[in-house]
Computed example of a mutant assay.
Amino acid sequence: MMQWQCLGFDELTTQQLYDVLKLRVDVFVVEQHCPYPEIDGHDTAEGVHHLMAYEDGVLMAYLRLLPAGLTYDAVSIGRVMTSEAARGRGLGHELMQQGLYFAEQLWPGQAIEIGAQSHLQGYYGRFGFTPFSEEYLEDGIPHIDMRLTKNQSAA
């Protein structure tokens, strides 16, 4: 059974921090052959939360929730990933649903912006994200900025 946790940096155990950094390097640096500054200083910033899904003590999925003004003018979700062992089970969709749920709990009614790898535009579109930039290269990988606008009157 998947166990979900959404924690601030100071709430992470040493083991959780290791698990997160290892999975992020495994997926984004090794698997995608993209050497880039993975440890970017945002993990420890005030208001940042780390959403993790563990199964039998193994980190299977992760994303990072960032408050407005840190990477975008709006709230942001980044570092969205599932472990290779978890793929094909729908966990990526559950991860995004959980991420959107926690973003709404942390920052009710606020828009969310992401820097999506361009080939995942359709995936994020299923959650209501729409592009608002031209395609650009980030660390040698085509990206596009996307936004999910919330109904502000419901807040």
Rank of each mutant, 00 (worst) to 15 (best):
M1F: 09
Q3F: 06
Q3D: 11
Q3R: 08
W4H: 04
Q5R: 13
L7F: 09
D10G: 10
E11Q: 15
E11G: 00
T13M: 04
Q15F: 15
Q15M: 13
Q16D: 15
L17K: 05
Y18I: 07
D19T: 00
V20Y: 02
V20N: 03
V29L: 06
V29H: 01
V30W: 11
V30D: 07
H33V: 15
Y36R: 06
P37D: 07
E38D: 13
D40Q: 04
D40P: 05
D43F: 13
A45H: 10
G47Y: 15
V48T: 11
L51K: 01
L51T: 04
M52I: 14
A53I: 10
Y54F: 14
D56N: 12
V58S: 07
L59A: 08
M60L: 10
R64C: 08
R64M: 10
L65E: 09
L65S: 03
L66V: 13
A68E: 06
Y72H: 15
A74G: 08
V75T: 13
A86S: 10
R87M: 15
R87G: 07
G88Q: 12
R89K: 13
L91M: 11
L91Q: 05
G92T: 13
G92L: 14
H93F: 11
E94C: 03
L95N: 02
M96E: 04
Q97M: 13
Q98V: 01
Q98A: 09
G99V: 07
G99T: 05
Q105N: 12
W107C: 00
G109V: 02
Q110F: 06
I112C: 02
E113A: 07
E113F: 01
I114G: 03
I114C: 02
I114Q: 01
I114T: 09
A116G: 06
S118E: 13
S118K: 14
L120A: 13
G122K: 14
Y123A: 06
G125R: 10
R126E: 15
R126T: 11
F127W: 00
F127A: 01
G128C: 10
G128A: 07
G128Y: 06
F129S: 06
F132K: 04
F132G: 03
E134K: 13
E134R: 09
E135V: 12
Y136E: 00
L137Y: 01
D139I: 02
D145K: 04
T149L: 04
Q152C: 00
A155V: 02
